[in-house]
Simulated scan of single mutants.
Amino acid sequence: MGAIAHLYRGEVYRSTIWRTRLDTTTNWAVVTLGVALSISFASPEASPIPLVLVGILIVFFLFLEARRYRYFNVWRARARWMETHFYAPMLAEGDLHLEEDWQRVLANDYLRPRYHVPLMVAMGRRIRRNYFWILLIQTLAFAGKIAVHPTPAASVDEAIRRADIGPLPGELIAAMGALYVLAFGAIALWSKRDDLARSRRRGRAKSDSMG
């Protein structure tokens, strides 16, 4: 009992540390977007290019945060497993229900550690939690920049022409922006469906895995 208690405390501690690391990458994305906004809106003549280039950094930070989330989820899942299969039955019934083999599942996870969620699911979860709002601000800021600076655009065609970046026409930039937004949205929706499917599977039968 004492060993399990110390083990649980260790898993909670590790999940807390990795949760802090998740906040760090989100902060990096917010700060870099803020810098891009400051540069692009510093004057009416300022270029909107920083709002485009910051998208590369946002994708990088999202990928990095998804990797960190997979580590965090390992410790979180183990702590949650002990809460639901050890502490809750002990408190409610005074019985550990060892016949359900939950302890073997936990032991196997220590013997053969693995990620509990795929990378794309982790990315989708982080998009839904944080990066949706970062993406929304970036998209609205870019659209607003080319619509009002240096003067209010008289037509959609004029706004698209302002999106030109060197030899790249505004139509191509707009298409790439639309693909960028759709890709984020598709990953978020797919991960949501995957999470719902996982929840339904856990509800229909006794789960033999964590995560």
Rank of each mutant, 00 (worst) to 15 (best):
S38M: 09
N73V: 04
Y71T: 15
L119V: 06
D95M: 05
S43N: 10
M90F: 07
E65V: 01
F63V: 07
G94K: 01
R21H: 12
R200S: 06
L106S: 00
L111S: 08
H149F: 15
R80M: 09
V35P: 02
D195R: 09
E45F: 08
A88P: 00
N130C: 08
V12Y: 01
F60M: 08
M120F: 10
V74A: 02
N108V: 02
V30W: 06
Q138N: 14
E171P: 01
T26L: 11
S40C: 07
T84G: 03
F72I: 01
A147Y: 11
M176G: 12
A141G: 08
V59H: 06
V117C: 00
M210E: 00
F184A: 06
K145R: 14
I56V: 15
E11T: 04
F41G: 03
S47N: 09
D164V: 09
T24M: 08
V121Y: 01
A205L: 09
R202Q: 12
Y131W: 12
G177N: 11
L22D: 03
L96K: 02
R14P: 00
N27W: 10
H6Y: 09
G177I: 04
L64M: 11
F41C: 05
Y87W: 15
R78K: 15
M176R: 09
R126K: 13
V30L: 12
Y110E: 07
A3E: 13
V12Q: 08
E45L: 11
L53W: 05
L57N: 06
V59W: 10
H116M: 04
R67V: 04
W102F: 02
E11V: 03
R68A: 03
D208K: 14
V156M: 13
G170K: 06
I160D: 07
A107K: 13
W133A: 14
L53I: 10
A5N: 09
K206D: 10
L196W: 08
N73I: 00
N108Y: 08
A141T: 06
A188M: 10
A141K: 06
A122M: 04
G55L: 03
L140G: 09
F86N: 02
I134V: 15
G124Y: 01
L7M: 12
M1Y: 11
V121S: 05
W102G: 01
R78G: 00
K145I: 01
L37V: 11
K192V: 05
I134Y: 00
G170V: 07
E100F: 04
A188N: 06
T32W: 07
R114S: 10
P48A: 03
A183H: 13
L196I: 13
R9I: 13
P150V: 14
P48V: 04
T139L: 13
W81V: 00
R70Q: 14
R67F: 05
L168I: 15
L189M: 15
G185S: 14
A42W: 11
F60E: 05
P150Q: 12
D157W: 07
P118R: 09
A154W: 08
D195F: 04
I56G: 05
D23A: 14
Y110A: 05
A88W: 03
A153K: 11
F86A: 04
Y110V: 00
G166A: 14
F60W: 09
S155L: 12
S15V: 02
I160H: 08
T151S: 14
G177E: 12
L189R: 15
D208V: 13
H149K: 11
L98M: 14
H6N: 11
V121M: 11
H116W: 02
D157K: 10
